[in-house]
């Protein structure tokens, strides 16, 4: 049987126009349009591009839900077996449209989908876990490389064939871990890698570390004797009984607690709820993690102006970066509003 594929492109690739026509509403055309020709060639005999969906980037961005509903309505009459969207390269709105549409079609029509983008397209971060997104260059110059990979991925899915690893198939890593057998043990492979590294040779890590963003250092405190300092911890120190029920791992919240008038943390008043280290020492004396006792002494001695009367705590144990970022943003806002000048953040 020949599979029926529908292809989604924006107003630009459909030859309708540039930004001035970006408000073009969704439209379905019979057969191939623009890059669809190359897609049809790559699909060969196994599948036919029965129709092309065209929508302006602004239209989609401004009426996302409506556009998806409309497009799904248009699609249904064509009974497609699969949807191919893009490639969107590094075009942000186009990428978001391809991602949103593929996501909706895969969920509502339950058919295979594939799209393609440059890794830094903002839609990649949002959709890469849910979709197969072929990695492309940042501009349409990469069309010739991208189309055959998209065709192969969609055909494999249609035929129910297992897909290979991201680098084999050319899609952006989805964060899925698969168990595989290797003929040499990890220690041997690690030593090989180390030797290559020492020799300055190329080597491929088996576990790439996530990349993190950087923030330039905040300006230094000029007058420490007048500065208000706050304590924050990821070590899970909370008032005894854990009133906010902060989780021992993968925390979804943080707590704000008063230390007004408090000179010292004791096993009677505070405890740790962190599930990622031995809590014995912190529970015996919580000042070992949140150093209130000495902070109070230094405050009295005038080593700094004053101690903020609230502290913030969460559990940094497998906490998703997105949560940690959100906690940080909220805490930062509160500390700014309280005219805090500097923060001592302790971690276990």
């Amino acid at each position: 049987m020949t599979y029926r594929v529908v292809h989604y492109i924006n107003q630009f690739f459909a030859g309708i126009g540039g930004e001035e026509r970006a408000d073009y509403p969704p439209e379905l055309r019979e057969g191939v349009v623009g890059p669809g020709q190359a897609l049809q060639a790559a699909l060969g005999e196994e599948a036919v591009v029965v129709a092309t969906l065209v929508c302006g980037d602004d239209y989609f961005a401004e009426h996302a839900e409506e556009a998806v509903d409309k497009i799904i309505g248009l699609l249904e009459s064509y009974r497609p077996d699969a949807l191919v969207a893009g490639p969107a390269f590094n075009a942000g709105r186009y990428g978001m449209a391809c991602g949103a549409l593929c996501d909706a079609v895969s969920k509502k029509l339950c058919i295979p989908v594939v799209t393609a983008m440059y890794p830094e397209n903002p839609a990649v971060e949002i959709y890469r876990k849910d979709l197969y997104i072929v990695e492309t260059s940042d501009s349409a110059r990469g069309m010739r490389d991208a189309i055959p990979k998209m065709a192969r991925l969609i055909l494999k899915q249609l035929n129910g064939e297992p897909l290979g690893r991201p680098e084999e198939e050319g899609y952006i890593e989805r964060g899925i871990r698969v168990n595989i057998f290797r003929d040499r043990i990890g220690a041997e492979r690690a030593v090989d890698m180390l030797i290559k590294k020492l020799k300055g040779e190329d080597f491929a890590t088996e576990y790439p570390m996530p990349s993190f963003d950087r923030v330039p250092p905040a300006p230094a405190i000029q007058n420490i004797r007048e500065a208000k300092i706050a304590l924050v911890t990821s070590g899970g120190i909370v008032p005894k009984g854990n009133p906010d029920r902060i989780e021992a791992s993968s925390a979804t919240k943080y707590g704000e607690y008063s230390i007004a008038g408090l000179e010292n943390l004791t096993p009677e008043t505070h405890e740790t709820v962190h599930g990622g280290y031995d809590p014995t020492y912190a529970n015996d004396d919580p000042d070992r993690v949140l150093p209130l006792d000495v902070a109070r002494e230094l405050e009295k001695e005038g080593a700094f102006g004053s101690l903020h009367d609230k502290y913030y705590a969460t559990v940094g144990n497998g906490t998703p970066v997105a949560y940690a970022k959100k906690f940080g943003e909220e805490i930062a806002k509160k500390l700014k509003e309280a005219d805090v000048d500097g923060v001592i953040l302790t971690s276990t």
């Binding site: 905040a218 953040l345 971690s347 276990t348």
Partner: peptide, 21 residues
């Protein structure tokens, strides 16, 4: 930590595993 510094609040990380920091 970074969110605090991002809004201009100097923040010092007191921690044991320096490479993670």
């Amino acid at each position: 930590m970074k969110e605090l510094e991002r809004v201009g609040l100097p923040t010092v990380h007191v921690c044991t595993i320096v490479p993670i920091s």
